[in-house]
Design a protein around this nucleic acid. Structure first.
Lengths: 107, 107
DNA sequence: TCGATAATTCCATAGTTATGGAACTATCGA
DNA sequence: TCGATAGTTCCATAACTATGGAATTATCGA
């Protein structure tokens, strides 16, 4: 992953509402969530939710599927895992950090 | 890690200059880097660097050590690895993502 | 075709964050 | 006690980001 892409993803996640939305989508799993469900769950005005959902979508952190008059949003795990990999590779050090040792197979 | 702490760390890293500074500190390893070295390496005005270093320090992503008239800054691996853990636990899914399977020991 | 529902876009406003030259503080060696 | 060097803080300005009510678009069932 490029540095500029990682900045886009980090900025996108660095907002309470968006991180909560994303966590919600992760919890919803393969059935996804509609904006309406998210509005109810997170108690947020529809326009505000829509703004944040769009940010997440444009960053590539979600994908969506139209189903009649509603839309299902899903967390994009590949995107998130690429970011996690980027941080492990570039911003941590295998010989100084437990989780890096695990991921590099030293444990 | 709390959600609010993860937001602070993500915001802090979600800036090109700060991510570059942090990567530089990771590369510098146990010898660390001074602001002067970073200014030269990253070609950035001293006031701007100082501003970003302070943000990183206040977020807990670095620690520092005064040495005479200069200061050594170091990447804080514990802080970064806590963030990586948080993302793996809360924002990814072990059964949908390779790197999560690794870290959860399913592989 | 209509009214209701789901979702998005518009847009003015408010709030936050970044920039970097200039001034300042601290510590060195001579 | 200087002058030089390292680093930070100050602060005005610029740029960006978020908010949410109102208007708009799309799709449903009757």
């Amino acid at each position: 992953m490029e540095l500029s892409k990682s900045i886009i993803l980090l900025s996108c996640l660095a907002h309470e509402s968006r991180l909560l939305i994303f966590k919600q989508l992760v919890q919803a799993g393969s059935s996804g969530s509609t904006p309406k469900q998210l509005v109810e769950k997170l108690n947020m005005p529809a326009a505000t939710l829509s703004f944040h959902l769009k940010e997440l979508y444009q960053a590539g952190l979600t994908h969506k599927e139209k189903r009649g008059r509603s839309i299902n949003y899903y967390a994009d795990y590949n995107c998130m895992s690429s970011l996690i990999h980027y941080l492990q590779e570039n911003c941590c050090a295998a010989d100084h950090c437990d989780s890096c040792q695990e991921s590099v197979g030293l444990r």
